[in-house]
């Protein structure tokens, strides 16, 4: 049996991505996982139908709010351009608001270096469609292999450095989320993944939505998308933990 496992593995070869040492390719980051920016278009010149077509009101005359965008692609025929790299999906809540539809300049999120060289990640779902859950858990598959970057999923918040929150918080999940955060030892960081966890996404007005994640726990960084691709989530965890490759942390 061992022989046949090995034989199959050899036949398949190495699947693991070179990301983040090289930028994500279209396989890892299809169009629908990219942040739509204004590109050459001036936002104010877009026909009003484009703003009206946006189901979450992410496009205004002055900005594109990547945090609200659910990547439905309705605005793309009007000339908006998906951003080329995964890191365009990251930012603070304010950093996801793109003035004139262009990414705000400046440095990215400040890394939390004190988290140390090995990161333990705990996932908490507060009311998702399960898409974000599966994209986060997908980081463990051989294509992304988060272990090569010194990251691990843990089964207990008591062992976790990073809390990944997905979903739109329902009344039943507000207290469990708060208690999960409190159970984590310091230093700790919170990554809110997906449009639902940022600003409610498509469910911003849903009767079951109780609060924003940021109102329940302090969020260090947001990853936009519906759902974000695994490489974007990986960028997010890396931005918190700062480690870019195998070997000692910088």
């Amino acid at each position: 049996m061992v022989k046949s496992w090995l034989g199959q593995a050899a036949a398949i070869g190495i699947l693991t991505t070179e990301f983040p040492r090289r930028p994500a390719d279209p396989e890892e980051l299809p169009a629908a996982a990219r942040a739509p920016g204004a590109g050459p278009v001036a936002l104010a010149s877009l026909p009003p139908e484009v703003r009206a077509a946006c189901p979450t009101g992410a496009i205004s005359l002055t900005e594109i709010d990547q945090g609200k965008c659910v990547r439905c692609a309705r605005c793309l025929p009007a000339g908006l351009v998906p951003a080329p790299d995964a890191s365009a999906n990251l930012g603070s809540r304010a950093g996801l608001r793109w003035p004139d539809g262009r990414p705000p300049g400046g440095t990215g999120p400040a890394p939390l270096a004190e988290l140390g060289p090995s990161l333990h990640v705990f996932l908490v779902d507060v009311g998702s469609c399960q898409g974000c859950n599966l994209e986060v858990m997908g980081l463990a598959n051989p294509y992304y292999d988060l272990h090569r970057l010194g990251m691990f999923f843990t089964n207990s918040p008591r062992h976790a450095d990073v809390l990944v929150v997905v979903g739109v918080p329902t009344a039943a999940m507000v207290e469990p989320l708060r208690r999960t955060f409190e159970a984590m030892p310091a230093p700790k960081a919170v990554l809110a993944v997906g449009a639902c966890a940022i600003d409610g996404g498509i469910f911003a007005e849903a009767p079951g939505r109780a609060a924003a994640v940021g109102e329940i726990v302090p969020v260090d960084l947001y990853v936009a998308g519906c759902p974000p691709a695994p490489v974007a989530i990986l960028e997010g965890i890396l931005a918190l933990g700062r480690r870019r490759s195998r070997g000692p942390a910088p």
Partner: peptide, 24 residues
């Protein structure tokens, strides 16, 4: 290996429909 195959199914969806989960 099964997780890798599941990921390749998602990539096939992404390449055909533009979205890994088929939204839209």
């Amino acid at each position: 290996q099964l997780n890798a195959l599941a990921e390749s199914a998602l990539r096939a969806l992404g390449a055909t429909f533009g979205h890994r989960w088929g939204f839209g």
